[in-house]
Amino acid sequence: MTLIVCFFVWGTAGIAADIATPLERAHAHNDYLHERPLLDALDHGFNSVEADIFLVGDRLLVAHDFDKIAPQRTLETLYLDPLRRRAQKNGGRIHSGAAPFRLLIDIKSDARATYAALAKRLASYADLVAHFDNGRFEPGAVEVVISGNRAKDLIAGDSPRYAGIDGRLRDLGGETPTHLMPLISDNWKSHFRWNGKGAIPAEEEERLRQFVQRTHQEGRQIRFWGTPDTSAMWKVLDDSGVDAINTDDLAGLASYLAGRPARSK
Rank of each mutant, 00 (worst) to 15 (best):
Ala26Glu: 01
Cys6Leu: 15
Ala13Trp: 13
Ala20Ser: 06
Ala17Phe: 04
Trp10Tyr: 11
Val5Gly: 01
Glu24Ile: 14
Asn30Arg: 10
Tyr32Met: 08
Asp31Pro: 03
Ile15Thr: 08
Phe7Asn: 06
Phe8Ile: 15
Val9Cys: 09
Trp10Arg: 02
Ile15Arg: 13
Ile15Val: 15
Cys6Gln: 13
Ala16Asp: 05
Phe7Leu: 12
Cys6Val: 10
Ile19Glu: 06
Trp10Glu: 00
Glu24Lys: 15
Val5Trp: 02
Ile4His: 05
Ala13Gly: 06
Val9Pro: 00
Ala20Leu: 04
Gly14Phe: 10
Asp18Asn: 08
Cys6Asn: 12
Glu24Arg: 10
Ala13Met: 13
Ile15Phe: 14
His29Lys: 09
Pro22Phe: 10
Arg25Val: 07
Arg25Thr: 13
Gly14Asn: 13
Ala20Phe: 04
Trp10Met: 04
Leu23His: 04
Ile4Thr: 14
Gly14Thr: 09
Asn30Ser: 14
Trp10Ile: 09
Ala17Leu: 05
Pro22Lys: 08
His27Ser: 08
Val5Cys: 03
Ala16Val: 07
Glu24His: 11
Ala16Ile: 11
Ile4Leu: 15
Ala13Lys: 11
His27Pro: 00
Thr12Asp: 12
Gly11Trp: 12
Ile15Gln: 09
Phe7Cys: 08
Ile19Met: 04
Pro22Val: 10
Ile19Arg: 07
Asp31Ser: 12
Gly11Phe: 15
Leu33Trp: 07
Val9Tyr: 01
Thr21Val: 09
Ala17Glu: 15
Thr12Ser: 15
Ala28Gly: 15
Leu23Val: 10
Ile19Pro: 01
Thr21Ile: 06
Pro22Asp: 06
Thr12His: 11
Ala26Asp: 04
Ala26Val: 04
Ala16Pro: 04
Gly11Gln: 15
Trp10Asn: 01
Ile15Pro: 07
Glu24Tyr: 03
Arg25Phe: 02
Asp18Lys: 06
Ala17Asp: 08
Leu33Thr: 13
Thr12Ala: 12
Ala28Gln: 13
His29Gly: 02
Ala17Ser: 08
Ala17His: 07
Ala20Gln: 08
Phe7Met: 10
Thr21Glu: 09
Asp18Ala: 07
Tyr32Lys: 00
Asp18Pro: 03
Thr12Pro: 03
Ala28His: 12
Asp31Ala: 06
Leu23Arg: 05
Phe8Arg: 14
Thr21Trp: 10
Val5Ile: 11
Asp18Tyr: 03
Val5Thr: 11
Tyr32Trp: 15
Cys6Trp: 12
Trp10Val: 08
Pro22Tyr: 06
Arg25Gln: 13
Phe7His: 11
Gly14Ile: 12
Trp10Gly: 02
Trp10Lys: 00
His27Thr: 02
Trp10Thr: 01
Gly11Ile: 09
Asp18Gln: 06
His27Asp: 03
Ala20Lys: 05
His27Glu: 02
Gly11Asp: 12
Leu23Asn: 02
His27Arg: 03
Ala16Lys: 06
Thr21Gly: 07
Gly14Met: 09
Asp31Asn: 14
Val5Gln: 04
Asp18Ser: 05
Leu33Val: 10
Glu24Leu: 07
Asp31Gln: 12
His27Gly: 01
Leu23Ile: 07
Ala17Pro: 02
Val9Gly: 03
Asp31Leu: 07
